[in-house]
Design a protein around this nucleic acid. Structure first.
Length: 853
RNA sequence: GGGGCUAUAGCUCAGUCGGCUAGAGCGCAGCAUUCACAUUGCUGAGGCCCAUGGUUCGAGUCCAUGUAGCCCCACCA
């Protein structure tokens, strides 16, 4: 068991992961209380980014910690088909070959993308392994797996039967390049320079005209009304009259509607119900005709004057403006900046177009969810996200679940060829036409919004309703995911979970913020500031990247990526490695059974360990991972390495060294799984892995009085070092006299000499040197008289601080309110503090007096 | 326009139920060096906890207002 001089993650990580897999160590144990997490599925077709590293790290930390408490842990991995994302990647791939998706049938396109994704999925699974995620690969689920599709169908059917599903013609955000609708959330708005055109609409009877303003003159071909505010005095006479729509000669009414802003432009608005969300609402209120003048291909439609048919939008706009000008109907043109919706993928301007879509009536579902949240049925980390979610659910609108893309789950609905109003539910989606009772039906060409199927993720992955996993592990212990998908995903999992399983899908929700770039910007491909975790894992090791990314990360808060955290974590890993290396040179067996205390520092370190372990459990149970890591870090580095190991060098206690190492490895394992297991394996003679350790290690109870002796020596050493530095003295000697505390110094003379580099630690009653006292120890330090002035300066500073403290405590204790209202224990504590502060001050003052003589 | 988050050391961030003489890592200054580790050790400097009010015996922490930055939603004829 020889260890290299420094920890080389590359030499061990992959081997260690294979070992775990060979031992089936990631499968839930038979015994133990169940603990379950289903991982949010990342895009199977893209490289995993830093955000997923964070997810993976947090969930794996939770899983490994719970295993170390003896629970039966299920961590389910998965991958997302990422509908539209993946389809557009594939389209780019096709474009390189000079082809497009329109060259293929929907079914053939689906098959091609399936194969394309299957190839890339291998690399994706490798990445999760490199991250060290201890997930049960036998439960791996893809969002297009049969059980997920079946579940989506069952849910759709249930909703259909319950009357929660309806079909409606609505305006959708349509990308004419991709040929699909988007959710509101997916549209990116950009400020753009445009124009506001003022157009005269002549009245039908009598003289005059009404002037409307628009940024989109081409949509006027679809106008079916002009609206003014009912309170607008300027237009009272116009309400109820009609105008002749220029260029088309259609007659359309002037109507009154509250939505019109009198102050904006002319206060008269052209209404195009088929191409504007507000106008759509007005159209419905006033029962106006809906005339679509823009097609799904982004061209002008056929039922408009011949001159404009088939033009694209820009051409039509130009021609219409010219024609209006020619007829003297263009009152004026003003430049203006307005925000325009774009496809987040290709940048094409999003057109609001009418489309028949499937909707889910969200009111009943949201109500249930709100009730659950209000009753505290799910705990949130951070807690504030719960109220945020309740607010969101309260204002929730109906959900459009239709998407016009091939790469998704086909909607199992068929339309009658005879009666377009008649729709039936049927799962034979592999056929375009089906026959039922002698009537023919055509398949809905649309697919589900991916959030629809992924909302069933917590139970569909566990084989609801009959699977063993479902019975044992549902509801999930925790749902850990990014706070950015609180609305689209977490909310829907809760609503559908309640609807389908009648239970909340998880007991708690842990939301992490996102990792921003070093400059504090959002990481995105277009900015080119995305950090790929793989090269970092390659260079620093998987554990270091994991620790570096969770370090200082509180739940819900966004944080800038800071590579220094990873370097720090790498150094820590190396530190632990070298502790193990030191221990490996002092021991010849991994057996720590029945160790004996043989020194005061043995007692001290065991006491420190107990404190650390108790704090560890508390912090981990509260999901305070970053603090839990710091707790272990300081125990290992400050207590174990800097003091215990140093003190051990003279007289090592092999069994305790091993006992401590084992205990530390179990505790640190969730944070540094590869490193801890590598060390464990290099020591262990038995055929077992660290990962399957069932509990945190307890060490025998120390003697507190003996531990305190070492504590005192430790403080003395720190004080001596500090004075030595201050006075620049390397050749000083430490003198002690007879007495109880002096015996302590005598016992540790060798260690003190080693750790302070004093030239001697000896007994003397001559009284030479300056007096120092620390933690009840009194002794004297010989320092160069010429440098004593510097020591006095430090004393002065110390005295000033001590005086300030005494004054503060005196003030506090002379405050009647404090004595009366603060808890007794606190007041007692303050009294003690004051007593101590006074003693210290007295000591310092007398010290100074003697030195000044 | 509506909502949210953040503001603490030069930098990146912790700070639970209000008890703080405010912490960590990095960075900085100085010193050390065969013997587990330079991915090291030791010592140190460095803070009006954004501002102003309030609640309280007591506020970095709770409340109000403001300022600055980030984000989300809605609207933009």
């Amino acid at each position: 068991m020889r260890l290299d001089k420094s920890y080389q993650p590359k030499l061990h990580e992959q081997q260690i992961y294979s070992l775990w897999e060979q031992k089936h160590a990631f499968e839930p144990s038979i015994e133990g209380d169940p603990y379950s997490i289903v991982m949010p599925p990342p895009n199977a077709n893209a490289n995993l980014h830093m955000g997923y590293e964070l997810t993976a790290a947090l969930e794996d930390i939770m899983a490994r910690y719970q295993r170390s408490l003896g629970r039966s842990v299920l961590l389910v991995p998965g991958a997302d088909h990422a509908g539209f994302e993946t389809q557009s990647v594939y389209e780019k791939h096709l474009a390189k070959q000079g082809r497009s998706r329109f060259d293929f049938s929907r079914d053939s396109l689906y098959q091609q993308i399936w194969d394309f994704v299957a190839e890339n999925r291998v690399g994706f699974e490798t990445m999760i392994r490199r991250m060290g995620v201890s997930c049960d690969w036998s439960k791996f689920t893809f969002t297009l797996d049969d059980k997920i599709v079946k579940r989506a169908y069952a849910t759709f059917k249930q909703m259909w039967d319950d009357g929660l599903i309806y079909r409606g013609e609505r305006l959708v955000n349509f990308c004419t390049y991709h040929g699909t609708a988007f959710a509101d959330i997916e549209v990116v708005y950009k400020e753009e320079q445009g124009s506001l055109w003022y157009i005269k609409y002549p009245l039908v009877d009598g003289e005059g005209e009404i002037v409307v303003a628009t940024t989109r003159p081409e949509t006027m071909l679809g106008d079916t009304a002009v609206a003014v505010n009912p309170k607008d005095k300027r237009y009272q006479d116009y309400i109820g009259k009609s105008v002749k729509l220029p260029l088309t000669n259609r007659e359309i009414p002037i109507l009154a509607d509250e939505f019109v802003d009198m102050k904006y432009a002319t206060g008269a608005v052209k209404i195009t119900p088929a191409h504007d969300p507000n106008d759509f609402e007005v159209g419905k209120r006033h029962d106006l005709p809906f005339i679509s003048v823009i097609t799904h291909e982004g061209k002008i439609a056929h039922d408009v004057p011949e001159a404009y048919r088939g033009l694209n939008i820009a051409e039509a706009r130009q021609k219409i403006v010219i024609d209006l000008k020619g007829q003297g109907l263009l009152a004026k043109t003003r430049p203006m900046v307005h925000s325009v919706g774009h496809c987040y993928k290709c940048g094409t301007i999003i057109e609001p177009l009418l489309k028949d879509q499937w909707f889910v009536n969200m009111q009943p579902l949201a109500k249930e969810a709100i009730g659950l949240l209000n009753s505290g049925g799910i705990s949130f980390y951070p807690e504030s996200k719960k109220d945020e979610l309740i607010r969101y659910l309260t204002g929730l609108k109906d959900w459009n679940i239709s998407r016009q893309i091939a790469w998704g789950i086909p909607i199992p609905a068929f339309q009658s060829l005879d009666d377009p109003e008649e729709w039936i539910y049927d799962e034979r989606v592999d056929q375009e036409l089906i026959k039922v009772d002698g009537r023919e039906y055509r398949r809905d060409p649309d697919t589900f919004d991916t959030w629809f199927s992924s909302s069933s993720w917590p139970y569909a992955t566990l084989d609801y309703p009959d699977g063993d996993s479902y019975r044992r592990f549902y509801p999930l212990s925790v749902m850990e995911t990014g706070s950015d998908i609180l609305y689209p995903w977490v909310s829907r999992m809760i609503m559908l979970g309640l609807y389908v399983t009648k239970k909340p899908p998880f007991k708690s929700v842990y939301l992490h913020g996102y990792i921003r770039s070093e400059e504090g910007l959002k990481m995105s491909k277009s900015l080119g500031n995305v950090v790929d975790p793989m090269p970092l894992i390659e260079e620093y090791g998987s554990d270091a990247v994991r620790i570096g990314i969770i370090g200082g990360q509180a739940p819900g808060a966004n944080r800038n990526f800071d590579p220094r955290n990873i370097t720090e974590a790498r150094n820590f890993c190396n530190k632990l490695w070298n502790i193990a290396r030191f221990i490996s040179e002092k021991v010849d067996s991994f057996d720590s059974e029945g160790f004996d205390f043989s020194s005061d520092f043995d007692h001290w370190i065991v006491g420190r360990y107990r404190l650390t372990k108790n704090k560890h459990v508390k912090l981990m149970n509260d999901y305070r991972f970053s603090e839990a890591y710091e707790n272990i870090y300081h125990f290992i580095w400050d207590d174990l390495a800097d003091w215990y190991i140093e003190a051990s060098k003279n007289s090592p206690n092999p069994k305790l060294l091993i006992g401590l190492l084992k205990a530390v490895l179990v505790m640190v394992h969730p944070f540094a799984p590869f490193l801890s297991e590598t060390i464990w394996q290099s020591f262990s003679l038995k055929d077992e892995s660290l990962l399957s350790q069932k509990q945190l290690i307890d060490l025998a109870q120390e003697d507190k009085a003996l531990a305190k002796r070492f504590s005192a020596i430790r403080e003395l050493i720190i004080e001596v070092r500090s004075i030595q530095k201050l006075v620049d003295s390397t050749k000083a000697k430490l003198f002690y006299d007879s007495g109880e505390s002096q015996k302590l110094v005598a016992d540790f003379a060798t260690l003190i000499k080693q750790l302070t580099k004093l030239s001697a630690v000896e007994k003397s009653s001559a009284g030479q040197g300056i007096a120092i006292s620390k933690a009840g120890i009194r002794c004297r330090l010989s320092i160069d008289e010429k440098q004593i002035e510097r020591y006095i300066q430090r004393l002065d500073k110390q005295i000033a601080e001590e005086q300030a403290l005494v004054k503060q405590l005196e003030g506090r204790l002379s405050n009647e309110g404090y004595i009366k209202k603060a808890p007794d224990s606190l007041v007692k504590q303050s009294r003690k503090q004051l007593e101590l502060a006074r003693d210290n001050l007295k000591e310092s003052l007398s010290k100074k007096r003697r030195l000044s003589l």
